[in-house]
């Protein structure tokens, strides 16, 4: 099972190495890792997707790193999760229209069109990307580049208020 863990760290040189070294040393398996700035200068967010059953030790070991500020695990469904990928698909002239139509069902647009291939950019939650890949397999995937997952917790307060308002009126 995959777990999504969000780690706020001090934006200092080497902090990514500290995190990945700890994962290696403790034999925790990283599925994907995305690092980037936050709204707060001086702090970075790492979104780590890990395989495994128990994340308690992972979270505690992350907290042990001196530059870690905050660690949270997103329960399934509690966060907006996104990945982005670039997929280059075989697309000779007779099938081109068919492929474009299939892609448009995913809201995906071609970003590069070659003599015999089309390259799509797909953004969305991980399931959507998996479905897109499954579909494109039939045409033949030439090249795939995929980002690590990023996630942001849902705004629980506004969701609850909305629901309440809905019931009331």
């Amino acid at each position: 099972m995959q777990h999504v863990i969000s780690v706020i760290v001090e934006d200092k040189p080497g902090v990514l190495a500290r995190v990945s070294s700890m994962f290696a040393r403790r034999d925790f398996n990283i599925h994907s890792l995305a690092v980037g700035p936050t709204e707060d200068a001086g702090r970075s967010r790492m979104t780590v997707v890990v395989d495994g059953i128990d994340t308690e030790q992972i979270i505690k070991q992350l907290y042990k790193l001196v530059h870690t500020i905050k660690v949270s695990e997103y329960a399934p469904g509690s966060a907006i999760e996104r990945e982005v990928m670039l997929v280059r698909v075989n697309a000779d002239a007779p099938r081109r229209a068919e492929i474009l139509e299939a892609a448009s069902a995913f809201g995906s647009t071609p970003v590069d069109v070659g003599a015999s291939t089309i390259t799509f950019e797909v953004t969305g939650e991980p399931g959507k990307l998996a479905d897109f890949l499954e579909l494109m397999k039939t045409y033949g995937i030439v090249n795939l580049v995929k980002s690590g997952r990023i996630a942001m917790g849902k705004d629980q307060k506004s969701a609850a208020r909305k629901q309440k308002n809905g019931q009331g009126g």
């Binding site: 030790q57 505690k60 907290y63």
Partner: peptide, 8 residues
Amino acid sequence: VDPAEIGK
């Protein structure tokens, strides 16, 4: 004093 030792 080290929370990671508890339950490890």
